[in-house]
Design a protein around this nucleic acid. Sequence first.
DNA 1: AATTCTTTTCAGAAGATATTGAAATTTCGG
DNA 2: CCGAAATTTCAATATCTTCTGAAAAGAATT
Lengths: 198, 198
Amino acid sequence: MALTIAEVEDRFVNDWGDLVTVWGLNKTMGQIHALLYITGEPLTADEIMERLNISRGNVSMNLRALMSWGVVHRQHRKGDRKQYFVAEEDPWRWFKNVVRERRKREVEPVIEAFSDTLALLPSPSSANGQHASGPGTPADTARLRARLEQMRDFVEVFNRGIDMFLRFNREDFNELMELLAATQDPGSDLARLALDRK
Amino acid sequence: MALTIAEVEDRFVNDWGDLVTVWGLNKTMGQIHALLYITGEPLTADEIMERLNISRGNVSMNLRALMSWGVVHRQHRKGDRKQYFVAEEDPWRWFKNVVRERRKREVEPVIEAFSDTLALLPSPSSANGQHASGPGTPADTARLRARLEQMRDFVEVFNRGIDMFLRFNREDFNELMELLAATQDPGSDLARLALDRK
DNA sequence: AATTCTTTTCAGAAGATATTGAAATTTCGG
DNA sequence: CCGAAATTTCAATATCTTCTGAAAAGAATT
């Protein structure tokens, strides 16, 4: 049996609300975003609060958060005192906004934290036999340093991957996916491609 | 002033614990993983619980979760009844494990949910003027369908991106990043590359 | 500049999630 | 296959997050 439009919308809104919690965002935020996206119409805070059965304050706070992620925008209407809100309607665009923000808020600080921690390591130069055993043995320090560096390097590569992703638009990304899908062994095939250009 | 080895380790463990919460995982899980990674030694549940000041049950539950993500492994020792735990020591490998698992647990079900929702839409064939106005107008249904399809398609592209990512090892991924970094306009450059191969 | 409509803020309440610890279960060496 | 040691489970508790709603602040209209 087919559902009404509103029922289908509700389903989508709830699914999306559940999905985002798993990525560390909050459910209401996901629901508001989903509602604006799926209706495609500018809605007021009142309409949102009514449709989702949530409080005025909740709507206000989450709309602010959504705007800070760049996935919802404010709209004004001539001769209307209320504010209207619309979702960025291109998923590709809002996804990139979210990725860009998360990188800024969450990835970059981690790279800094790791660099700071590395700077606090007992220096390797003090390893010249002053006390060849004990808890802070030179070899232990070297191992620790190696692990930290490996992790910092990994996060930097991750960051770089995000960078590259952000340079793509939907069509180009699809093209890249097709190119990669056609390769048997991504590594060596790409190496050939890189050389061909020179 | 330089810190002791244990202090540096603690710093790393806490940073990592904080980081993972932001991605929807729990802090203790991140800390245990970080501790095993940074020490590089097999540890028993007792040692972990002591070092992180957490309860036996907490360690047990989180170790299980970490193993289900494929980032921590059990080790047995001859003539020792205790279980030892080690972290996968290559960040690239555990990251891929986590990505693979998240895709399975979180992305694939969403694609299914969207397809199910689409199937519940009032069919477009019932649009033949039976009741040309009202809440469930054919045009509304068509708009809703278009939005749902757009979102489902987007999630599918996302899924495809993950697929491609998982085919790469660290070196090849770095190579790809370099290739992309060298392009001015990723799209048209890649289009050329794709044609060159044929 | 006073009135009315709208939005934001934030302390307290409600709800969700993580943690403890002791009992129940499992495991393994003898 | 017994018994001690190790591990898991889970109800109760603690902690953290989100939500509410009314009061305060802000904006447009007259």
